[in-house]
Design a protein around this nucleic acid. Structure first.
Lengths: 256, 256
DNA sequence: ACCTAACTGGGTACACTGTACGAAGTAACT
DNA sequence: AGTTACTTCGTACAGTGTACCCAGTTAGGT
């Protein structure tokens, strides 16, 4: 099920972990693990098996230690997830784009899309309260800089960045789910449709639902190959940026 | 987290269940339960506690029977979820709208939004292969009828309906997650931000991330009240339909 | 009236999950 | 050497979906 949550722990403890502010102890045995190593192992598992496969025992097995050992390094699973998020956000290139705000927002969208495709488990994590680590902050700063100084209010800047991120999230989610359902079921969309048609015919829905039958069949035939998510992404992004453009022009030269 | 899946069972068995095509047995004790009753109980739980709260044991408890009893009526949890989906889609009003395709698509978006708000657990279910029950078919038929006869190809009709549904899904997901995180944490966004600020100040990110600090503070102050999701929804929907309009006009009077 | 086939309810078991608790071992300071 | 801080990790608990099996119930056939 979708849902793992981020940002649920104690702020002081979480930020200490995210910014690696813990003073190393002087006495006692040397720690055998590091937070970095644990996060790396957790990311390997999540990338390969989805967020559902990333259990504390599974991560501990990967590192050759007992499950409870992890709790010496990380307060709990929620906080480990926070560090994983901040870590993968660190992979974003955050390129300096020559051009106007539109070119920059376009780049933001593409970079985020790549990240989602590389780490599909990100789509299964609800990030309503982002973990305020160094890479999350840098990501937010970078994305805001794309729409800074073009006449938007602070609130509108945040809205716009959130709108683009929301669009990319939804578009990639659809594409990834389509890809995953083919893997999980071992059936292409066409095969799945053809497996249902004879039973639907028996029920007689072609008469009751003529449009659904006609369009459903057309779509089933068209997309034997993997769903053309590239085209859908480009089209939707262009429409979205057109919409933002209207707002920017309205702000830079208001009529009333 | 996010994820429960739909449409994973055997097609014949699933469709038989969705369309209630099972012949009732002649011998043996009269069944104490009905599929309808089980689905009703499961919906009550999912509406109140989210999809994570809907376990087979929990549903069985609600009905005063043992967990395994449910398996006499439903092949498994995945199929029960399919019937739940088809059932709630039956709640959609599917009003006849006077007006052009835009007014109709607008209505489709609003009806779907209401449904997501009434059953937030829908947002946690990945529906890449919809359960082909009577109400899912009727929903698809109704939504296609909004864009029938305006010059789009069958594929474009499906794309357009999917685009609108995708937008609504994303917009409501953001709003619902914001609402839920306040419940779960017992903190408003402002309180959460204020709890982090002193620690972030100690780290000194205001210097490193000036834009993020400025905009983050502005957003934190603005949205003390519940996030103004109505406004965001209206704005985004208007931009989206503008984009579709461009496609429709291009199809009805192509230049090249 | 009685047998049997068909059916229902549900107990137990298995392999999972996150993590609280506490025991046992190790290293550095006094 | 004793104390203190720190490590690893076994056990336990309350959950999860569901395979398997047995006991009880009812209708049809004889």
């Amino acid at each position: 099920m979708n849902t793992e949550h981020s940002g649920s722990g104690d702020p002081a403890r979480s930020l200490e972990l995210l910014w690696r502010r813990r003073r190393q102890p002087t006495r006692g045995p040397k720690p055998a693990l590091t937070v970095e190593g644990i996060v790396e192992a957790a990311l390997r598992i999540a990338d390969a098996e989805g967020i559902g496969g990333m259990s504390m025992r599974r991560v501990a097995d990967e590192l050759g230690v007992g499950a409870m050992t992890l709790y010496r390094y990380v307060p709990g699973k929620a906080e480990l997830l926070d560090v994983m998020l901040d870590t993968v956000y660190g992979e974003l290139p955050r390129r300096d784009v020559d051009g106007d705000w539109r070119a920059k927002l376009d780049e933001v969208a593409r970079e985020n899309r790549e990240l989602y495709l590389r780490h599909p488990w990100l789509l299964q994590v609800a990030i309503s309260r982002p973990p305020l680590g160094p890479h999350v902050m840098a990501k937010y700063e970078y994305e805001l800089s794309a729409v800074e100084g073009i006449g938007l209010t602070d609130i509108e800047m945040d809205d716009t960045v959130a709108l683009v991120n929301g669009y990319v999230h939804g578009a990639v989610r659809t594409a990834v789910e389509a890809r995953q359902v083919i893997q999980r079921s071992g059936m292409t969309d066409k095969e799945w449709w053809l497996a249902h048609v004879p039973h639907l015919d028996k029920i007689g829905d072609a008469q009751k639902f003529p449009l659904a039958s006609r369009v459903g069949t057309a779509v089933g035939n068209e997309f034997e190959a993997p769903y053309d998510s590239d085209h859908a992404f480009e089209y939707g992004l262009a429409r979205l940026l057109d919409g933002v453009s209207a707002l920017v022009e309205n702000r830079s030269g208001p009529k009333d």
